[in-house]
Simulated assay, not measured.
Amino acid sequence: MISKELLDIKVMTKANIYWDGKVISRTYYRKDGSKFTLGVITAGTYTFDVGDKEVVSLIAGEAEIILPEEKEWHSVKTPDIFEIPAHSQYQIRTPEVVEYLCDYIPD
């Protein structure tokens, strides 16, 4: 479960805006230098390319995803966590607003 309050972090003021503003996040760094984003996904279907490995924790809402090497949609809902391997692609779709925290794990 994700804490409702995050302490001792650095935040980048420039938003990450995707899909004409339908997906928006902000980048943060912990004291140890690890990077994560907090974001919102609005209703729709989206495909994302992944650089570093991503560990996504749902904070609010539910969605369906197709991870690399998968062919079928499967449901995820708060407080589920899912991982996307580095240098891959995944799909997510949702009929509602989803909030998430995404940790980036360098190769």
Rank of each mutant, 00 (worst) to 15 (best):
I17F: 11
R93L: 06
V56P: 05
E5G: 01
S3F: 11
L6Y: 12
I24P: 06
K77W: 03
D80P: 03
S88C: 08
D49L: 15
S34K: 06
I84Q: 03
K22N: 09
A63S: 04
D20E: 14
E62V: 00
K31E: 13
T94S: 04
G21Q: 07
Y28N: 04
P106A: 02
E83I: 05
V56G: 05
H87W: 08
R26C: 10
A43W: 03
H87L: 12
D32Q: 04
L6M: 13
K35N: 05
Y46Q: 07
F36R: 04
I59C: 01
I41P: 05
K22Y: 13
K53G: 05
D8V: 00
D80E: 08
N16W: 11
I81G: 00
E72C: 09
K53Q: 12
I59K: 02
R30D: 04
D32G: 05
E83T: 08
K71G: 11
D49W: 11
F48M: 08
A63V: 01
R93Y: 06
F36M: 02
T94E: 03
Y18M: 10
G39R: 01
D32F: 07
L6T: 09
I41S: 05
N16H: 14
G39N: 00
R26E: 08
A15N: 13
W19S: 06
S3K: 14
L38Y: 03
K14S: 09
Q89W: 12
F36A: 03
T45N: 14
E69L: 11
M1S: 14
V55K: 04
K14V: 09
T47E: 15
V97E: 11
V56N: 02
F36G: 02
R93H: 01
T45R: 14
T78A: 11
V23H: 09
C102G: 02
L7I: 12
D20H: 15
E54R: 07
I81P: 01
T94L: 08
E70P: 09
E72H: 11
D103I: 03
Y46W: 07
H87S: 14
E62D: 14
E5H: 14
K4W: 09
K22V: 02
A60H: 15
M1L: 13
I66D: 04
A43S: 10
I41A: 02
N16T: 04
S88K: 02
A86F: 09
I2V: 13
D103V: 05
A63G: 06
E70A: 07
I9D: 02
F36L: 06
I105K: 01
G44P: 07
D8R: 15
K35F: 07
Y104K: 06
K35L: 13
P79G: 05
A60L: 15
I41M: 11
S25K: 01
P95C: 08
E99H: 11
G21F: 04
G39V: 01
P85F: 07
V11F: 10
Y104V: 04
T78F: 10
A60S: 15
I9V: 12
Y46H: 01
Q91R: 14
I2S: 13
S34Y: 11
W73R: 06
I24D: 02
